[in-house]
């Protein structure tokens, strides 16, 4: 367990059954359901990368009953995990292209694995330029600080940070994410932008990107819905003819735009 922000922790899970641990494989962007037995279960994006003997990591903000219980747990506690579920970011399709990764607050959780996937030295040259824009309410709320140096030092990679409100020690930007997008003007040419964050931030960030010439098919995000079963039965995540747990959570905004409902 690692404190990421005052209300967000990174949980590292090791599977008890070695055979299950051996057979577990997942893709960037998939999610799993984490159980605190006696309290319940909730869906979280997996923040780690699939690698032999690597822990399964989840970045969890304390917002509800289950996340509260998770945050109260001690190192070494036993939780349950079901998964992986859902589709993934098509990382192979992004090879050879530039990437803009924009995360607002806990929206950085599913994007952390995207960034870590691209900046791995063995893989880095398969991708073009990488712009990471990480925004939060205050400097303390910026997640994954322990990885900033690794990200920023990767070749052809630029890490930009911004906060809504600074503090005495903050020397960086104080601006809203959409305004930073307008200032940095990433080129839409041969580029994919991945955006995750609160709905209002997504709305205005997409507008800024579209003004720069990004098409809906170049804009990718995760649809966050309430989920219970993870296997397309409970109906919670139904949007149009889609079940986010089976068909998502990763969609292009061209696909999201075809939903009749705003989600």
């Amino acid at each position: 367990m690692l404190d990421l922000t005052p209300d967000m922790k990174l949980f590292s899970l090791r599977l008890q059954d070695p055979a299950v641990a051996e057979s577990l494989h997942y893709e960037v962007g998939q999610f799993a359901l984490v159980s605190v037995f006696g309290v319940g279960e909730a869906a979280f994006d997996i923040s780690s990368l699939d690698a032999p003997r690597a822990a399964l990591e989840f970045a969890v903000r304390r917002v509800g009953t289950l996340t509260e219980a998770l945050h109260e747990m001690e190192e070494g506690s036993v939780v349950g995990v079901r998964g992986p579920f859902g589709n993934c970011f098509p990382m192979a399709e992004y090879e050879g292209r530039n990437l803009v990764v924009i995360g607002g607050g806990s929206g950085m959780a599913p994007l952390r694995s995207v960034v870590n996937y691209v900046v791995q030295p063995a893989r880095r040259e398969r991708f073009g330029q990488l712009l990471i824009l990480n925004g939060a309410r205050t400097p303390a709320d910026l997640a994954f600080k322990h990885e900033f140096e690794k990200w920023a030092s990767s070749p052809q990679t630029c890490l930009e940070l911004t906060v809504d409100r600074g503090d005495d020690d903050w020397r960086g930007r104080v601006a809203l994410i959409p305004d930073v997008v307008r200032e940095l003007k990433p080129s839409p040419l041969d580029c994919v932008a991945i955006v995750c964050g609160p709905p209002i931030m997504i709305k205005f960030t997409l507008k800024a990107l579209k003004d720069l010439g990004f098409a809906d098919s170049q804009l990718v995000g995760t649809v966050e819905t309430k989920m219970k079963c993870g296997i397309g039965k409970c109906g919670r995540c139904n949007v149009g003819d889609k079940y986010v747990c089976l068909d998502g959570p990763v969609f292009t905004f061209a696909e999201i735009g075809r939903f009749l409902e705003e989600f």
């Binding site: 159980s35 037995f37 909730a42 009953t65 609160p198 819905t225 109906g235 139904n238 989600f263």
Partner: peptide, 26 residues
């Protein structure tokens, strides 16, 4: 002891789609 129980729920409940963070798309 505890039991994990599934029970009927319906799309007509305001809580059906409400996320822990407060956002409710429906």
């Amino acid at each position: 002891h505890a039991e994990r129980v599934r029970c009927w729920d319906g799309c007509q409940s305001a809580l059906f789609t409400k996320l822990a963070g407060g956002h409710n798309p429906r």
